[in-house]
Structure formats: structure tokens, C-alpha cells
Amino acid sequence: MNAKIILCALMPFAANAQGFAGLGGDADGFSVPTPAPSFDFPADHGPHDDYRIEWWYLTANLQAEDGTDYGLQWTLFRSALAPESGAGWTAPQLWMGHAAVTTPTDHYVSERIGRGGIGQAGVTADPFSAWIDDWQFSGDWQTMEMTASGTDFAYDMDLIAQGPLIFHGEDGYSVKSAGGQASYYYSQPYFDIAGTLTLPDGDVAVTGSAWLDREWSSQPLAADQTGWDWFSLSFDDGAKMMGFLLRQSDGTAYSSATWIAADGTTMAYPDGAFQAEPLETSETSGATVPTTWRVQLPDRGVDATVTAVNTDAWMQTSVPYWEGPVRIEGSHTGRGYLEMTGYE
């Protein structure tokens, strides 16, 4: 199967050469996020079929007993051809899973694609379970289990939530452009995670912390936005920060950030407060991307350098992008994850 087909199919927003830029398409019949949302859990942990695009996106910074850093990703994307649920082959809900393990020297990636109506992939809210093929992420949002496997790696993880859900933007309404494009966006950044990575050299027992993002929308990007640089940073002092830049075709960027204090209270920052500046780029197996960044949130005294653990964390998937663990040094220290899309 030609990757291009999958790309066209699963990423209606990625049909043009710019890849992620098409996320700014029309909503045509799909629901659009509106300000001041009120979430209903556990139902909202489940899928929202009347929105075009949605994801369950978990990244984790792990360490083995010998101190080696690892990164882990488990992602399930939902993409709708039409704003309907349906059952059987005609259901317009398509699913794509990405799993990855990053070591300081290697990056293992796997991708799965399937159709929703027949049970091959999907998400149920209560009891919560998200799956595609044999990959699974399930539990009650306090204790959870997660598995995935590719041709050359696999993992089996247990997670325990140690804090509350975090809502980005205005109570979960996250604005993505000056034009008002937005998504619903909340996170669970407080998972303790432990389990086993199966790698070509054998099994590795690891522990660490994981960050789960939930986001859904129908046109999250503006038409002139070409990609994003997204940071989820966990500082050693207990505070956390989510920040992203949405790059625009004129060279400027739209930024947004959420500060999560050690006690779990949050503060959303509007465009311009959060700044990120590439310091160094690396050649990866795909594109050349910035792998060392200076990130700043002056309001919180953040001025830190974010460096990729493995610069070649390129996701050679239908829609390729960069996703990998990072280390933080400078005004704050810690670990985190970096995602960069739209680099060709």
C-alpha cells in the first residue's frame, strides 16, 4: 500500500505537500470547538466522532537501572471521513497508531492503520480502552496498562496517575491561531510508569514518568500554519510546562503555554509569552530539524536549553515527524518530550 494513500486517507489535513499545514481546512459539517467547554468524564475520555481529528497521545521519559535514558511513545489518532459513527466497513472513522521507543543510539518505530467500524481499532470511554490491533491502552485513569509492538521492539507498561487532569488554554479550550482556530485539549502529565522494553538486545526494565495528551478538533490550524514545535517539560522541582509554537508561512509563529505548578495549579499563557529558538539542527533519517532549543517563559523565570537525547528520533511513518525525549538544563533542569512537525 502506498504511503501516500494512507496519508491522504488518514490525514485529510495532510493531503498537500506541506503535510501538517492542511490541518487548517474547512470544518465541513464537523463540529467545531467552542469556548468555555464543560467536560463530562468518563465520556470525554472516549471518542468524539463528530470532530474530524482526535488523539490519545502518551509520551514517557524512562530510565533503566543502569541510568540509561529511554523515551517511549504510544499514540492513537482518530480521523473521520465524515462526522458519523456507523458500524461495519462503511463507518467513516479511521484509526492510526504510532508506537516508538527511543534509546540514546536507536529509535524504533511502528505504525498501524485500521478501520473503526469493525472493531480492529477504537476507543471506549467506560471502561476506558483505546486499541488498534494488539496495541492497547486501558484502565480507569488511575491505574492503567499499555502495550505495543513492532517488528523489532515491544513494550508492556503499567501506569499510576499521581495527580489531577490538567486543562490547557481556557479550561481546555486551546486557541491555535490569531484567527481563532482551536481544539479541546487536556492532559494527564502525572503518570508514574514502569514496565519492560523488549529491544533487539533483550528486555530492559524501566521506570519513569509519562504525560498523556488528549486533544480533538476539526480544524485546529489556520491555513497559513505549516507545522509546530511542541514541548512537554517536567522540571526536577516538580513544576511542569507545556508550550508550543505554531509556525506560520510568513516566518512568524503563534505560541501558547501552560504552566503547571508543583501543587497542580495551572496558568495559561497567551501568544508571545512562551518563546523557543532553535540553537542547533541535526540531520535525521528524514529532514533536518532543530534538536537543541532555547526555551523561555520569562514570567516564570524559565530560560533553559532543551537537548534531544537522540537527535535521530525521526518517525518514518505515513506522515513523518520528529518525536523524542529531551533533557533540560539552564534555569530549570529536568526531562521532557519534544515533537516537531512540518519539516520536509
Partner: peptide, 23 residues
């Protein structure tokens, strides 16, 4: 979506409307 590469009509690879194919 699950078919291995090389299975199926050749034309489909030429940027055919997958949405129409799947609907």
C-alpha cells in the same frame, strides 16, 4: 488500509480518492 504494499489496483496508488474507495 491493512493490505501489504503491492496488493490492489495500481491506480489506487496514483493519489486516488481513498475516501471514495472506502465509503
Amino acid at each position: 488500509l491493512t493490505a501489504p504494499r503491492g496488493l490492489g489496483p495500481v491506480d489506487l496508488a496514483g493519489g486516488a480518492d481513498i475516501g471514495a474507495f472506502l465509503s
